[in-house]
Amino acid sequence: MLEVTGLVAGYGSTEILRGIDLRVEAGEIVAVLGSNGVGKTTLNMVLSGLIEPRGGDIRFDGRSLKGTSPAEIVAAGLIQVPEGRRIFPNMGVRENLELGSYGRARKNRAKNLEKVFDTFPRLKERIGQFAGTLSGGEQQMLAIGRGLMAEPKLLILDEPSLGLSPLLVEEMFALIERLNGAGLAIMLVEQNVVQSLELASRAYVVENGAVALSGDAATVAADPELRRTYLGL
């Protein structure tokens, strides 16, 4: 579904991504792991068309995304839930969700809104509230719900567990598993190594703008270098 080959990108004279290769197949969860500053957010921005790649190629659903605008990428079904939620705090819950269908799936807005409320009953309970008054966990639900409103073929989740309590982190990963169980392909970009590897079928570990380690999740989790670097073992 998504194939990235030799991806190079950066800002000004600074090169951030140095030949990234990765792929996501239909219906699977792929974890992209790494600490702050290794290039994960830059990768997401390139995939969403917000930064022009300097080299390599990105193919989504059989089509190259080179020279494709962010709006066209959304229309194709590649949807990102960005780090930090990026909701509109002074707008209501319903309005935030409806904005998710602005560029894709507009005709199914009412049906998809009910699906989101089935997935997140708490959002339905708070439908009249301003988004900025929601708890951190509820705001993350809102951000994911907004992404689901666009009927994604592939959903990129950028640090969905960031800033959540341990209990809410457990709930968030359970939600991701349910969404994938319904057939949604997910690229999970996270610092939470242990839980991401428990959930994903395959994983890529990014260091200094390049893939340092990749493979099926169980093999990556057992790798001595990963255990030493990220788990302190």
Rank of each mutant, 00 (worst) to 15 (best):
G77R: 09
L78Q: 14
L78G: 15
L78P: 12
Q80V: 13
Q80S: 13
V81D: 06
P82C: 01
P82Y: 00
E83Q: 14
E83D: 14
E83I: 03
G84T: 03
G84R: 00
G84W: 00
R86D: 14
R86P: 11
F88H: 07
F88A: 05
F88Q: 06
F88K: 07
N90V: 07
G92I: 07
V93D: 09
V93I: 11
E95R: 11
E95P: 04
E95F: 00
N96Q: 09
E98M: 11
E98T: 12
G100I: 09
S101F: 06
S101R: 03
G103P: 02
G103W: 11
R104K: 14
R106S: 03
R106P: 00
A110N: 10
K111R: 10
N112Q: 14
N112G: 04
L113Q: 10
E114Q: 13
E114I: 01
K115A: 11
V116T: 03
V116R: 02
V116S: 04
F117E: 04
D118E: 15
L123F: 11
E125D: 12
E125Y: 01
E125V: 04
G128D: 15
Q129E: 13
F130H: 10
A131I: 10
G132Q: 07
S135D: 10
G137V: 07
Q139V: 05
Q139F: 01
Q139D: 05
M141Q: 06
A143G: 01
G145R: 12
G145L: 13
R146M: 05
G147P: 14
A150W: 10
K153W: 02
L154V: 15
L155V: 11
L155D: 03
D158A: 12
E159H: 04
S161T: 11
S161R: 07
S161M: 05
L162G: 09
G163I: 10
G163E: 04
L164W: 02
P166K: 06
P166V: 08
L167R: 15
L168M: 15
L168Q: 09
L168V: 15
L168D: 05
V169W: 05
E170S: 09
